[in-house]
Design a protein around this nucleic acid. Sequence first.
DNA 1: GCAGGATGTCTAGCGTTGCTAGAGTGTCGT
DNA 2: ACGACACTCTAGCAACGCTAGACATCCTGC
Lengths: 192, 192
Amino acid sequence: MSAIKERRERERAQRHQLIITEARELAEAEGWEAVTTRRLAERVEYSQPVLYSHFSGKDAIVSAVAIDGFGELAAHLRCARLADPEPRQALHAVCRAYLEFATERPALYQAMFVMPTDVKFAHAETPPQLRAAFDEFVSCLRPDNARRELFAEVIWSTLHGMAVLSDSGRIPPDGQEERLDFVVTQLADTPS
Amino acid sequence: MSAIKERRERERAQRHQLIITEARELAEAEGWEAVTTRRLAERVEYSQPVLYSHFSGKDAIVSAVAIDGFGELAAHLRCARLADPEPRQALHAVCRAYLEFATERPALYQAMFVMPTDVKFAHAETPPQLRAAFDEFVSCLRPDNARRELFAEVIWSTLHGMAVLSDSGRIPPDGQEERLDFVVTQLADTPS
DNA sequence: GCAGGATGTCTAGCGTTGCTAGAGTGTCGT
DNA sequence: ACGACACTCTAGCAACGCTAGACATCCTGC
């Protein structure tokens, strides 16, 4: 009674993840407007209703993709931070890594930070991956700064604004590196 | 042959504007997802196809709302800037006015800066209202600063990030004023 | 070994969306 | 008065997210 059920649950979990990765790949390839339940079901090689046996709806699939993305972002930022232990350089590296992440995976980034979501931010039920990503910014700041969180929120806002305005063609994408230098130079020194 | 045609064109222009304002009001009241061509047509008291005799599609209506918004934003920012002629204070005031605008008209703001658009930014065909709004930021910066444009882009990115992350509940909306103070303090002094 | 129940999947379809073709109406210039 | 034109509406298409109910498949208890 046990082994078979285990196999089934394993297969089910695999399919669960397959839905997420196929949704993400389709979104990265053709944008989220191309991710319809029909097309997604076809890629997964099941019919539409199975999607709803795994997720409450399309929004939940997008959220699942986003949460995967939070984990990857946290790892990406952490990697950048640890590569350059000097705090000032570290902040610069983390910020650059953030922008890299956003430009290289625009659809994933949208799912995480643009599309409407019911994922809780800065809250008790915040997914730990998300908190981890945010903390990478905080870790670059002097521990004795009482306003680190606020500082980190502002940096994040700036990077997010740059990422999203550049992605939608509202500011020229070329200037990103120069803007980044400017931001870090201007913000890096923690106020007394 | 003339007076009648003129009346018709006048009425048509009125209806054109009516579509835009009704779309905007409906969006402000219930969000853009509630703005369907059917509901909009009902509010305008015409059938759906007349919408398409004025606009190429729903996107074009959103764009028209956005362009109206650019004009209002420019006026709002200009008003804030002129109220406080000292440059440092002026920047602060303009930034605060920007955030005010975003929080008080969230749907309009979304049409302008979040929803996909084919309006050209930083381009020869950029609507003058949009350029005017951007220039309000530039005007707060020292004219001898060769990198004013870049500076303004960064400020705009920061404010946009704050506005949009706060609107979607990704950063706590309470801290906006404090974050604003921090940003202006940190960025206001033009680098040499 | 085999019925019976539970589990899982699919087909078919509902209501809504953006958008459009073609019919119908009314108005205008001659 | 009438033909031509400009305009608006009804009706419908394809695609959307989502779901009910039929069907098949597999495990369980006798």
